[in-house]
Design a protein around this nucleic acid. Structure first.
Lengths: 123, 123
DNA sequence: CGACTGTATCGACAGCCATCGATACAGAAG
DNA sequence: CTTCTGTATCGATGGCTGTCGATACAGTCG
């Protein structure tokens, strides 16, 4: 069940109502946890923001390996994780491979986390 | 460096601008990845939504152990992870311990993930 | 006080994951 | 075709993490 290369997560299949509203189903929770797991690594978070904030909304891998202290295979691995989570898309154009974010996926997670102002005051 | 019981994440120290706008700093990425890691488990996601959607905005642990197939110590462990990530707060009142979500933390993550409509059309 | 219930901690263990070097693959350039 | 560069895959490895049973702790009730 926990095979390494899972199929890319199907965006439409995942729920999107705020989790504050109603309890998450077990199935949805599994799908969503995969996406959050993709965000649970500092390198992947920075990769994602680098891609998202890059001019034109996409970035070549060659732009992404520089800012990190980890090896090129590791960067490639992290990009694969982000892609399989459905958070980024990629395409080869000639020599270089380009990555871009999938806004719908990010917005879905954002909507899920949306909480009402202050249902309970933090102590 | 990777001790099990980290101090609870300080909310105010973490950035909140959309990551699509500008690249995440290394420090912020580490902080944020800890919170996303707390969300990267199906049981914890369901726990969080159970707590958030519970009447009164808080739930007793006794309300949370039932819906799951895992043992009570495991639930307790997951609640601790959520608490140390700053996503929930807790308090003992007499015999029972109550948990509630920290809306500011959820909203901060939601804001971070907010992406512009469709900077690039998904292929 | 002692018994009982609800919750947390401990120690162990199996499976997962981030990382690396080595290497394979894809396209461009000579 | 050969070489070179950019990227992905492979296999190994050390560390992290989800899970459990056993047990400790906190508060309530007789």
């Amino acid at each position: 069940m926990s095979k390494q290369s899972l199929p890319v997560i199907d965006q439409a299949a995942v729920c999107c109502a705020p989790m504050v509203r109603e309890p998450l189903g077990e199935i949805d929770a599994v799908e969503l946890s995969r996406m959050f797991k993709a965000l649970s690594d500092p390198v992947r978070l920075r990769l994602l923001s680098l891609i998202a904030s890059h001019e034109g909304g996409e970035a070549c891998v060659c732009d992404l390996t520089g800012p990190f202290d980890v090896s090129q295979p590791t960067i490639s691995h992290h990009l694969k994780v982000l892609r399989e989570a459905g958070l980024v898309g990629s395409e080869r154009r000639g020599t270089w491979v380009y990555y871009w974010v999938m806004p719908a996926a990010l917005n879905r997670l954002a909507a899920l986390l949306q909480a009402p102002a202050d249902s309970k005051v933090a102590k």
